[in-house]
Simulated assay, not measured.
Amino acid sequence: MTDAPLADAPVPETRERGWRAFWNRGGWWKALIVVVVYLGVYQLLPIVLLPLTRPLMEENLFATPASVFAGLALPVVLGSIVLLVFAWSLGWLKPLFGRQPVRGRWWMWFAPVLVLIPIVLRLFGTDYGAYSVGVIVMTFVAGLFIGFSEELVTRGLVVTLMRKAGHAEWAVAAVSALFFALMHSVNILTGQGVAAVGFTLLYTFAFGILMYLTMRVTGSLIWAMVLHGLTDPTTFLATGGVDKTGGAASESPLLALTGPATILLIVGGFLLLIFIRGRATPIAATVADAEAPAPRG
């Protein structure tokens, strides 16, 4: 006589399958896919929208608010929507914008300070008389969307995918910063010199480390988005263009200090990376698990 199965025997756990399961297992190469696809969409959107945006754009991008919107703001606004839809499809919106799973340390406060110094120098050193009020406002709006989208990609999605794969936090920080830097390597396609692109890669890698640490020490991705969102527009207005350097530095003592402040930022980013330790419990480990009904018993 064989034993009958118990009525209350536990049901074997079934593995999550499908779209969410693929991304919930994480991995650096999946993070790279996200970055490459986003970069492709971001580069393609201006070409697709060109028939609509060409009448609005001036030779000097910062000549009118409409030109800033068409040439700078619109692509990142649409890119942000694409990223939000992707995160929503995975059920990651709440954990992405929620509390960080790894506690920050006191020394990590150096990161937002290093980023704030050049922001403040440009904020108070820029000659705003060269722009209309509408251009200034639209530039800051565009900058906030740049900070939102680029941080959502790198410190949001990339960090999440790295943590889900079980990587140590130093690797999470380094890979997210590396992918952020690689996103800016496409500047060479716009005619920038090799030396300028090389410096940009160093800067963006260090900046990415500081953004990771800002996220850690504040406990939220939002503060990294805010600091990033202030960095770009203050740089655009101080230099008079996108991906330009110098500008009115010779006419403003404050802007003249942004060069040394930027070098300090780069050195600080590389040094602080050395001290990153720890390993996170995977964020939003599996939304399906969290939403599954409690086991019977």
Rank of each mutant, 00 (worst) to 15 (best):
R122W: 10
W92L: 07
A31L: 09
Y128H: 02
T281M: 03
P5L: 15
L96H: 10
V11N: 05
R122C: 11
P233K: 05
L44Y: 13
Y131C: 06
G98S: 13
V115W: 00
G166F: 10
A288F: 13
D289C: 03
L210Y: 04
A73N: 07
L78G: 06
Q192S: 14
L116P: 00
A130S: 08
W23N: 00
G269I: 11
W223Y: 10
L116Y: 06
V158S: 06
G246L: 04
T2K: 14
V37D: 07
W23K: 00
L49T: 12
G219V: 02
A142R: 03
D3C: 02
K94N: 08
A238N: 00
F86S: 12
A280M: 04
A171T: 04
P10H: 12
L116G: 08
S185M: 11
H228W: 10
T239F: 10
P233E: 12
G297S: 11
K244D: 00
D289T: 14
P55N: 06
G246R: 07
V77I: 15
E291K: 15
P12F: 03
W223T: 01
E59R: 13
A142C: 09
F69A: 15
A9M: 09
F22P: 02
L210R: 14
Y128A: 14
R54H: 14
T262V: 14
Y131T: 03
M183L: 11
R54C: 00
A87I: 01
L221M: 06
R17N: 09
F207L: 15
V153Y: 13
L161N: 02
V34D: 00
A285K: 11
S185K: 11
L49P: 15
M1W: 10
P233V: 08
D3Y: 09
V217N: 06
F236L: 01
V226P: 09
H167E: 09
A63R: 12
M1F: 05
A171P: 02
L202Y: 07
A165Q: 03
A284C: 07
A284I: 08
G229H: 09
V85R: 10
T139F: 09
E58P: 01
G208C: 13
E58D: 04
L74G: 01
T200Q: 15
A130P: 03
T281F: 04
F124N: 00
A206C: 11
T53G: 07
T2R: 15
A73W: 11
V133H: 08
Y131Q: 05
V34L: 02
D127G: 03
T154E: 11
I188R: 13
P101Y: 15
G208W: 05
L84Y: 10
L161M: 11
V113W: 10
F205N: 05
A288T: 15
I146C: 11
E13Q: 08
V287A: 14
V34I: 01
W107R: 05
W106I: 14
M138A: 05
D3V: 06
V115R: 04
A173L: 04
G297I: 12
